[in-house]
């Protein structure tokens, strides 16, 4: 499904701020595999997601989706088969536009824009059907501006928007981190339901150790632009949070001393 071959990215090359953000990193994801990604700040988690999404071009290596090389494609071309949800709920939706209009744009993900009415009656039924399970009452507010919604509602809508057109790959970048614990739980629950329903191949970056072990089937840990830990199956099921922290220390030779990581349990 997704094949990452020896990718490298250096920011500010030749500068005093030179930073080796991704270091000869390789990874293979099977179709429908859901991977959680953890690591301390600056480990390269977001850089990895951005490299996949095409926010910048990688310096070396290849990225293949379903056997097709995509690492030279610009961001908006890859967007037709990659869904993304960012940490900031404001980034995933257009505030001045209605719920229906936002969903319509998401439904047309990656298709050429036409001079046809963007929202129609037939779509409206689909939107209601997909909004109803969120349990937020948004199905009755299709023509409300998204700016009127709360952060949690917006993030739930963003998750729906990222997945409504069935992307080949879903990238979640700490998408519940900016929400209060209760809303975060609701949005995470919704996310896992949608992923399971669509059998979506997913990358989920998280700071929450519990999420890292309970969501999905595989956990990778990053450090200094490399994958230092990759666990799945029974080994992962037996793993507890303290074990995970210990494994990090062993693998990286450092203690995982990010407050956010330790507190986010």
């Amino acid at each position: 499904m997704l094949e990452i071959r020896n990718i490298t990215k250096v920011f500010h090359r030749g500068d005093i701020n030179e930073k080796l953000a991704l270091q000869n990193l390789s990874l293979h994801l099977a179709p429908g595999e859901v991977v959680t990604v953890i690591g301390s700040n600056g480990a390269g988690k977001t850089t990895l997601l951005n490299a996949l999404a095409g926010v910048f071009q990688i310096d070396e290596g290849q990225i293949l989706i379903e056997g097709r090389e995509i690492s030279r494609q610009p961001e908006h071309v890859r967007a037709s088969y990659i869904g993304r949800v960012f940490q900031d709920p404001n980034l995933g939706t257009a505030a001045s536009m209605t719920i229906e209009e936002n969903l319509a744009m998401a439904l047309h993900r990656g298709q050429p824009l036409r001079l046809r009415r963007g929202t129609g009656r037939s779509q409206r039924e689909l939107f209601r059907e997909r909004l109803r399970p969120l349990g937020l009452g948004l199905e009755n507010r299709l023509t409300s501006r998204v700016g009127l919604l709360s952060g949690g509602q917006r993030q739930a809508l963003t998750v729906l928007m990222a997945t409504i057109a069935c992307p080949k790959l879903l990238l979640l970048d700490e998408h519940t981190a900016a929400l209060d614990p209760k809303t975060a739980g609701v949005v995470l629950d919704l996310t896992t339901r949608i992923i399971a329903g669509g059998q979506l191949t997913t990358f989920m970056v998280t700071h929450n150790m519990e999420q890292a072990l309970t969501v999905g089937t595989r956990t990778i840990m990053m450090h200094e632009g490399q994958i230092i830990l990759d666990i799945s199956g029974p080994e992962r099921e037996r793993l507890k949070i303290p074990d995970l922290l210990k494994m990090f220390e062993q693998a990286s030779g450092k203690s995982l001393n990010t407050d956010r990581l330790l507190l986010a349990r």
Binding site: H76, V77, A79, L91, M97
Partner: peptide, 16 residues
């Protein structure tokens, strides 16, 4: 409209 409102979002939806 989305380009004026949230360019990053509309790019992530595949619009140039």
């Amino acid at each position: 409209r989305a380009t004026g409102d949230n360019p990053q979002m509309i790019r992530s939806l595949g619009v140039n």
